[in-house]
Structure formats: C-alpha cells, structure tokens
Amino acid sequence: MAEFMRDPKYGTAAEIMALDWARLMGILEDPEASVFAKAKACQRLAVVGNHFAVDAIAPLLADPQLSHYARFALEPAPAFAADPALREAAGKLKGRLLVGVINSIAVRRDPEAIPLLGKLVNDPDPEVARAALEALARIRPPL
C-alpha cells in the first residue's frame, strides 16, 4: 500500500474530508496548516461549504499554490456568497490567477461582473483579455 501524505495536525485526506464546514474553515485560517490540508479542505467545502466559509476561502484566491483550490470551492457555491468574492479578486489579481478567476466568473455566469469584464478585455495581458472576452460571450444575455 502506498504511503500517502498527511498533515501533522489534521491527518490524512480521508480524515480532513470527514470534517464539518466549521472545522474545514478552521484549517483554512490556520497558518500552520499545510498546503495539503488546505487543498483538501477546499475540495470538501466545494460540497459542504456555505456563505460563512467564503470568508475563509476568498483570501486563498491570491495564493499561487491554492488559488485554484479556492475556486474549486467557490465555483459551485450559492450565488450570493461566491460572486462578490470572485468579483473582488478579479479587481485585484494579475496574470494566470486573474485568468482563473475570470474563468470561474464565466462558469457562474455572473451578470454583475459584466462591467468589470468589459474593462479587462483591454488588459495588456493577452491571456487576460482573451479570458474576459470569452467570459462576456458566455454571460451576456442574447440580443
């Protein structure tokens, strides 16, 4: 049997995935928790998270190692909770992390992001501009 990674404090992936949303939030807010533990917490919060958890997840959008995991948790979350966090991140991030956030906004089809995306189509980074354009095509209502 392969030896798998474990977090010294929070244990194995299975142990982390068995925690409730409040404990999972605690992992995200714990500076001593490993990337592994936070990644697993985000993946479980994708299913059991609520609007309280968004406050713990959103800061990870700016973390190069955990940004995608944060989006993993936020992308399927209820609208009122995740959309403001993603829009706020889109206003601050650059480069690939910004592309990822734009992609998640597109999947969620957030109409309130249209003005923000309208500005990002002129971003000097061609990847960002292209992502914003495709997001707008997905979100704008048909004429």
Binding site: A46, L74, P76, V99, N103, V107, E127
Partner: peptide, 17 residues
C-alpha cells in the same frame, strides 16, 4: 439536492477552460 448539484462540475486549473 444542492450537494449533488454542486458535484456536477469541477473548476479547471488556470488557464484551462
């Protein structure tokens, strides 16, 4: 079933979409 609906998709790692 909100939980089941959340499991219908997974966010892709940037830059993929």
């Amino acid at each position: 079933d909100e939980q089941a609906n959340r499991m219908r998709s997974r966010a892709m790692r940037e830059p993929w979409r």
